Computed example of a mutant assay.
Amino acid sequence: MATLSFFVGVIGNIISVLLFLSPLGTFCRIVKHRTTEEFESFPYICTLLSSSLWTYYGVTKPGSLLVATINSFGVVVEIIFISLFLVFATPRVRAKTATLVAVLNVGFLAGVMLITGFLLHGDIKIEVIGFLSAGLNIVMYGSPLAAMKRVVSTKSVEYMPFLLSFFVFLNGGIWTFYAVLVKDVFLATDDDQDLPTRD
């Protein structure tokens, strides 16, 4: 069973790489036009926090190297995306984005790491980190709703590309299967979504 779970985890990592890189076209457009237009940074901030927590979970829980490696990659990708967003955003949007990054990706993450690192030990530490990581995915699931609203109001799927939706679907399926194989209830909720959305 370990061989099957490892194989499924590797496939999950490959799909997750494609998912993390799926907004590349959006950021090429931002760089080309030298503006973030009406794109929203919140999904990328949430994905950075989620990837950071899942990396911490993967490093903390024995046998979760595949979770740690893919989410470490996600952290790097999201830092690049958010940095580009900060460079090309208007001053008001830049200030809002920087504040969210400071509060969520620095403050909240540091708080979680300090509390779990110094006050919790063993299985309870792993469970708290897993619970927080899984809970954050609820916020991530809600962040693409702005894109769906735009799709309905404009009757255009320009901001909800097929490949992005396809990789979200595959990613959710493969990581749920992996979670069943390794009997990890927290991973069953981890569908790393990184959807470009507009206000």
Rank of each mutant, 00 (worst) to 15 (best):
M1Q: 10
L4H: 09
F6W: 13
G12E: 10
G12S: 06
V17C: 13
V17F: 15
F20D: 14
F20N: 14
L21G: 10
I30P: 12
K32E: 10
T35V: 04
E38W: 15
E40N: 13
S41R: 05
S41M: 06
W54S: 03
Y57S: 13
G58T: 07
G58Y: 10
V59N: 04
V67G: 04
A68T: 13
I70A: 06
V76C: 07
V76T: 11
S83H: 00
F85T: 09
F85P: 03
L86P: 00
V87W: 02
K96F: 04
A98T: 08
A98G: 12
A98L: 09
V103T: 12
V106I: 15
L109Q: 05
T116S: 11
G117Q: 01
F118T: 09
H121P: 00
G122D: 05
K125D: 00
L136F: 08
L136K: 14
N137C: 12
S143I: 02
A146P: 01
A147W: 03
K149G: 07
V151G: 12
V151L: 09
V152H: 08
T154Y: 06
S156M: 00
M160G: 01
M160Q: 04
P161R: 03
P161W: 04
S165D: 11
F166S: 12
F169S: 14
L170K: 07
T176G: 12
A179Y: 00
V180W: 03
D190N: 15
Q193V: 11
L195I: 15
P196H: 02
